[in-house]
Design a protein around this nucleic acid. Structure first.
Lengths: 349, 349
DNA sequence: AGGTGAATTTTGATCGATCCAAATCATGAG
DNA sequence: CTCATGATTTGGATCGATCAAAATTCACCT
């Protein structure tokens, strides 16, 4: 008899507040209150309304609600065109955590295509705001000199950045403590007997990169180990890593890389030099990409707590939407070192 | 003077149709027509209205529009919690292509968390529909026995599936021709001199897996090559691939894998057996994950045209929304074989 | 001059929920 | 029994756009 899972659909048509009200014998306002301020209703009425709500399986019309309350309950998130070859193992997991936690707070994620760094990038954000399509933003892949945070801040738009380098003093952010991660990697390598530990990273200037390099440097100093000439930078993952590693070979017994991609370039370079990663030279990556577990030797890596990052972003953004003038919140989460074959063997003297 | 980039903001406040109308000296309806049916206006009026529109930098209030037109201009897309370890290099690129092309069609993507295969999964979709939050859906990660397509079809909800195995006869879909891909891999290996080419895939039963296996089989037969005992299945990427490859070692000089992950497991297994991937045994993967390019030897792989898939999804969904009763559309796109070191060397007899 | 139909513009209602303020009800004190 | 007081409930306006239909203007013909 019933065509759908919902009950009581004799004559179909939209289930509106008015319909529920009619069925419960009250006014629409009362039904609205049952949903939004149940404490205002007399217990008996509340019960009756709730039953009608239930029987009709009512769901509020978002556009109507949004029009009246001037809040879309949507959060904007711009997806960038992943540059081919550059892996961003981040987004997938992060997006799920983000939308899952947002869902629980009654919000949803609105995806839009954004051209990172394009001149008219702000235009895309502005448009969404003027259209009242979103209540706030989550920014990802922020970079030094990123204009978005300052711009949003000035306009008084709620937002959270995943990445602290652009919004350091401008607003709320959540980030992963890269320095803590690379330091942990050094600690583990030292414990395994390594003393000459090189760092393979990107050219100075990027927030994330310098952060990760800084952690390595700090840990090396803490262990009274030499740092000179052990830091190598490269942009292209394959070629540059190769020449870079060549410079280090013989000088180091372990390499901490700023990303799994660089670590892979390192594997390659070592093999080309006739060395065996993991056996001759220990390697630790960053990001714990899916491949890390499967490589031979499997790659030790620092796993970012993306679930937590996502949840934190939601939590903070919700707070900011509720109270735009509250003190900004900053959250720094530590990555977890996953030790695998590439760094677990004892070092060779 | 001007605080924002927009011009003429003396007294701020929301820029509505009414405001534009007042400035242009016409009725709101006329402004609305200027936007939605400009051909109805007299040229002179149109010009005047457009100027006002421009000066005020008007953007329609989406909720208001949505309420009246009963269309949210949003497309639902459920993100699944990526099972840890299982890589889905798909989503990132695909999502960008999808939201980019949707944007161009005046639509945006609404992300929501969905628990794949959960009992109440349909509930999540139903809720979005009842709320009028979306006009349609893009399904991803469909699987055999997936109930969503049939359910959506029955309700008359516009949708497109990325993956043909669940919606074969139920609705529109876009998919990548896995068989074509593996066949191309076989062709290339044969051209390089290989005759004993094994297939490493998942257990029978999954649409994608059987499709890819089918392409290998077809190509082998076409080349008059033996197929018997050369097909190996495994679920876990590392361990099972290892034992599976062990069974093939000596029998085959090349392996076509159903995924890069399996190919990686294969690398590992070969090394454990004292063999060198690429040199002793050629390997071809599927998906062209970021790691493929960086492995040593770099991994030949089949790249899915995710940009095109995304664009096709949008195009088809738009057509379906416009005309719910049109004949269903199905698009099958060929993956591109990227030949790298792992399969380019001549085979050893 | 009057009329006709097409072109152009305007009026008024409407989508569905929530705001605000007013109306009704219940309770107990005087 | 009346009135004040607070607890519940309701009426009407409103958010900003679009729909449907009516009103106005215009060009052109007889």
């Amino acid at each position: 008899m019933a065509r759908t899972t919902s009950a009581g659909g004799r004559k179909s048509g939209p289930v509106t507040l008015a319909l529920v009200a009619q069925r419960a014998g009250v006014s629409t306002q009362t039904v609205s209150n049952a949903l939004n301020s149940p404490e205002l209703l007399a217990p008996a009425t509340l019960k009756r309304v709730r039953q009608a709500l239930d029987e009709l399986d009512y769901r509020p019309h978002q556009a109507a609600r949004s029009l009246r309350t001037r809040s879309s309950r949507l959060i904007g998130y711009g997806v960038q065109p992943t540059p081919p070859g550059l892996s961003t193992p981040v987004s997938d997991h992060f997006l799920h955590a983000l939308s899952d936690s947002a869902d629980q707070a009654g919000y949803r994620i609105l995806l839009f295509a954004s051209l990172l760094g394009a001149d008219d990038e702000a235009e895309r954000y502005d448009e969404l705001l003027r259209e009242h399509s979103v209540d706030g933003f989550v920014l990802n892949n922020t970079y030094r000199g990123d204009k978005r945070p300052a711009w949003l801040h000035k306009k008084g738009v709620p937002f959270v950045a995943f990445g602290r380098w652009s919004a350091k003093d401008t607003g709320d952010w959540v980030d992963v403590d890269g320095a803590h991660g690379t330091a942990a990697a050094v600690d583990q390598l030292v414990a395994a007997g390594h003393r000459k530990i090189a760092f393979l990273g990107w050219p100075r200037g990027s927030g994330v990169g310098d952060d990760r390099a800084g952690g390595w440097r700090e840990a090396m100093r803490r262990h009274d180990l030499p740092v000179r000439d052990l830091r190598v930078s490269s942009v292209d993952e394959v070629d540059a890593a190769r020449t870079a590693v060549a410079r280090v070979v013989g000088r180091a017994t372990a390499v901490v890389a700023a990303s799994d991609t660089l670590a892979l370039g390192c594997y390659r370079a070592l093999r080309d030099a006739g060395l065996s990663p993991g056996r001759d030279v220990a390697v630790v990556g960053f990001d714990d990409s899916p491949a890390a577990r499967l490589l031979s030797p499997s790659l030790s890596s620092l796993r970012q707590p993306l679930d937590e990052v996502g949840r934190a972003c939601t939590r903070i953004l919700m707070a900011r939407i509720k109270d735009p003038d509250a003190a900004p919140e900053r959250v720094l989460l530590a990555p977890e070192l996953i030790v695998r074959e590439s760094s677990s063997a004892e070092s060779h003297p």
